[in-house]
Amino acid sequence: MGIVRTPVGRTSGHGGRKPAEVHAYTLDTGNGFAATVWTYGATLVEVLVPDSAGRAENVVVRLPDLRSYEDRRSPAYVGATVGRYCRCVSGGAFSLDGVVHELDRNDGAHHVHGGPLGFDGQVWEADAETRGDRLVLRLTLQSPDGDQGYPGDLTAEARYELGPDGRLVFEFGAVTTAPTIVGLTNHAFWNLSGGSEPIDGHRLALNSRRTVAFDDELIPLPGPPRDITGTPLDYTRPRRLDRARLDTFYVLDDPAWAAELCHEASGRTMWVITDQPGLGVYSADHYRTPRAGLCLEAGAWPDAPNRPDFPSVRLDPGQRYRHRTVHEFPIARS
């Protein structure tokens, strides 16, 4: 068991930012269960999980090199920590206390996943430590007032924790100097086959009977979430993904569990538990390698800054934003 820090390279300084050194931190439990995180984007680039025969393979999609992660022409947010606000803000603007804040737009008229230079494209500060049988990596980022149009100086934190119980824990936090909005998530693409095949053979179960209804631009429609019981979007009972195209936000009403993903051939299963109010599920049909992985993004509801009927994403000075999501791999602890 241990933590290893290795250099990855130096950023190219895109967006007018100064070039910076990037490092990889590998948290290794010593039993085949390990995770590697880069300081660029606080990005999860590898999660090694044993199969039923004890062979450890990477179960998240990764890109070949740092330059691929830096490519802002068509960012896929592969494994990145997404913020200051994940998902969409319609029209690229929102109002707080009667003041309209214009955000940088990166999806036509809209703002998505923190903007053109969101948290996924920045180098975070990192420190790592061993706490008993837990391996902990803490990454922090300073986002100044006006960054991508957001108000307030924000201090963000992404914390990864790994232990011999087969659990990978994401914990996000933030504090602000002025009223703002916050919603952080991890954008990993999961593939329990070890990447040897598309996700179609996986079985998915979701603890949700409602989804947010979207228009053609993936902006929420007026009205409450829709009941999907008995429809093709209903995964309350485990079933194969096959060719199902998913880019949907599921409402989570029960904190006991959020999702279960299984790959029978490898024997790998992943359980997802979160304190967040919803789960974005994306089958990567528009990724460079279609259906290479499945995103299960716990976090805030889409366009919540403009929807007073959705759970609030407001953060005020003196408060602390908190988010905890656990990905549990039972085979890794056996």
Score class of each variant (00 low, 15 high):
60 V>P: 08
294 L>I: 05
331 I>S: 09
174 A>H: 02
334 S>A: 07
273 I>W: 01
290 P>N: 09
80 A>W: 04
69 Y>L: 00
249 F>I: 13
145 D>A: 12
9 G>M: 03
26 T>K: 12
235 Y>R: 12
156 A>C: 14
271 W>Q: 06
290 P>L: 13
134 R>M: 01
249 F>M: 15
242 D>H: 09
14 H>G: 13
257 W>Q: 14
25 Y>E: 02
227 D>L: 04
249 F>H: 15
195 G>S: 07
76 A>N: 14
107 D>Y: 08
124 W>A: 11
56 A>P: 12
90 S>N: 09
73 R>P: 01
13 G>K: 05
190 W>G: 14
260 E>S: 03
43 T>M: 06
75 P>N: 11
90 S>P: 04
304 A>E: 00
90 S>V: 01
146 G>N: 08
149 G>S: 15
330 P>T: 13
305 P>D: 13
161 E>F: 05
84 R>P: 11
24 A>H: 09
85 Y>K: 15
209 R>C: 12
161 E>W: 02
18 K>G: 01
224 P>V: 15
28 D>T: 07
307 R>N: 12
328 E>T: 14
281 V>R: 01
289 T>G: 11
105 R>T: 02
201 G>Q: 15
316 D>R: 15
334 S>E: 14
9 G>F: 06
224 P>I: 02
55 R>S: 01
75 P>G: 08
14 H>R: 15
187 H>C: 11
149 G>Y: 13
80 A>N: 07
237 R>E: 15
238 P>S: 14
151 P>H: 06
222 P>S: 04
15 G>Y: 06
108 G>R: 15
246 L>F: 02
329 F>M: 03
146 G>Q: 09
21 E>C: 09
280 G>I: 04
145 D>V: 10
211 T>M: 05
278 G>V: 06
287 Y>F: 14
195 G>W: 00
242 D>V: 11
141 L>C: 11
160 Y>D: 11
249 F>E: 09
64 P>Q: 00
139 L>C: 08
117 L>G: 09
86 C>K: 10
61 V>K: 04
210 R>K: 02
217 E>D: 13
235 Y>H: 10
38 W>N: 06
173 G>Q: 05
180 T>A: 12
42 A>P: 10
201 G>Y: 10
85 Y>Q: 12
243 R>T: 15
210 R>W: 02
234 D>A: 07
182 V>N: 07
79 G>F: 04
94 F>L: 12
165 D>M: 04
281 V>W: 01
8 V>A: 11
208 S>A: 14
316 D>A: 09
108 G>W: 00
305 P>L: 08
112 V>E: 03
133 D>M: 02
225 P>L: 10
36 T>P: 10
253 D>Y: 07
105 R>G: 11
308 P>M: 10
61 V>G: 08
267 G>K: 03
91 G>L: 09
6 T>F: 05
15 G>R: 09
215 D>S: 03
313 V>P: 00
266 S>Q: 05
312 S>D: 05
273 I>K: 14
43 T>Y: 09
136 V>E: 14
164 P>S: 13
323 H>M: 13
112 V>F: 13
265 A>T: 07
247 D>E: 02
147 D>R: 06
299 G>Y: 01
211 T>I: 13
209 R>N: 10
28 D>E: 08
2 G>W: 01
125 E>M: 10
195 G>L: 13
26 T>N: 03
100 V>Y: 05
66 L>H: 14
80 A>V: 05
327 H>E: 07
94 F>D: 04
